[in-house]
Design a protein around this nucleic acid. Structure first.
Lengths: 168, 168
DNA sequence: ACAACCAGTTGCAAAATGAGAGCAGTTTGG
DNA sequence: CCAAACTGCTCTCATTTTGCAACTGGTTGT
């Protein structure tokens, strides 16, 4: 498709694929927000991507093999987007970006809590979450661990902060 | 400065700062290529950034406190750009991006070798390299370790691949 | 039957990008 | 001592990308 690449440097090549303001946010929402339909990605995130951009980025992510699209059996028009292994393995990138932003930028409390936990959890927690993503996006069965999953823990922490803020 | 931020999410905030095709390449060149002058950044990288974009991105990175600029005592017109601690701590982000690109994209052999070593070296190697950057960019003295530095090892590996390729 | 919902597409204005030339001052080599 | 090369940029202008909002053609639930 796009052969006019600037160099064979891994950082450059990665940026040519996801080096824009939206692609990684879409991956983030699929990973941490479990958004799997076009409408969910369009409306249920804070940043208000516009529909043409979303459509364009989903196309690129599909072309690049970072996500896949399947028909939703329950609704003839709905598509279900899933992360591939290639997409799932972007987690450490997002985790590092998230950790750096948490440390150095004016992050809101409720949206920062996930970053904090993920950063403190380190590679071990990332690996566990990666396994959970393989189950929910690739259908790979895994042995149940005791207690709540990483995804659940992150979500719970977020809700706790929200509840606390509403009280005040 | 820029108040029209899209959300307080750490990932979003980070992308608003460096989420474009050039900013991270500039940081990369300062980190791994030790480019410290405008001309070096302009001409000594594979991707051929144009001067107006480079000037603009350096300004943003300065505003964001990711780099600093000092006059070069040896040349009245030259400026020396240095990474701040905030900039140096982007290393893990670059390392993960680099590792992912190395695994999934058509990286050239000579430019991939650094990614490979950095990925295999893991967080321990990153911490050592971070210390070296603190010395070269912030002037923080550190205890010399035995043997070649991480920066030297990466550079040497790159040269070795180049030499081998020229032979063929 | 009809409103609400679905995944996008289209048209258009505004902003960002990119190539190249140009500039004022500085340093270097002969 | 002078010309050439080098310095960090800035300016212009064409092209590309972005972003908003309206719209399409179909599906689903009541």
């Amino acid at each position: 498709m796009d052969d006019n690449q600037r160099s064979g440097c891994p950082i450059n090549l990665t940026l040519e694929v996801v080096g824009d303001k939206w692609s990684l946010l879409i991956v983030r929402d699929m990973m941490f927000g479990n958004r799997r339909h076009f409408r969910e990605l369009l409306t249920k995130s804070e940043e208000h991507i516009s529909s043409n951009i979303l459509a364009d980025r989903l196309k690129t992510l599909l072309d690049q093999g970072i996500i896949t699209r399947d028909d939703d059996p329950s609704h003839k028009q709905k598509g279900i987007y899933s992360l591939t292994e290639k997409g799932i393995e972007m987690l450490p990138i997002l985790a590092q970006i998230s950790g750096w932003g948490y440390k150095y930028l004016p992050v809101s409390e409720e949206l920062g809590i996930r970053a904090k936990l993920l950063s403190e959890g380190g590679p071990k927690m990332w690996a566990e979450f990666t396994d959970e993503l393989r189950e929910s996006h690739l259908g790979v069965k895994r042995r149940r661990k005791a207690g709540p999953s990483v995804g659940e823990r992150l979500q719970a922490a977020y809700q706790r902060v929200l509840a606390r803020k509403r009280k005040k």
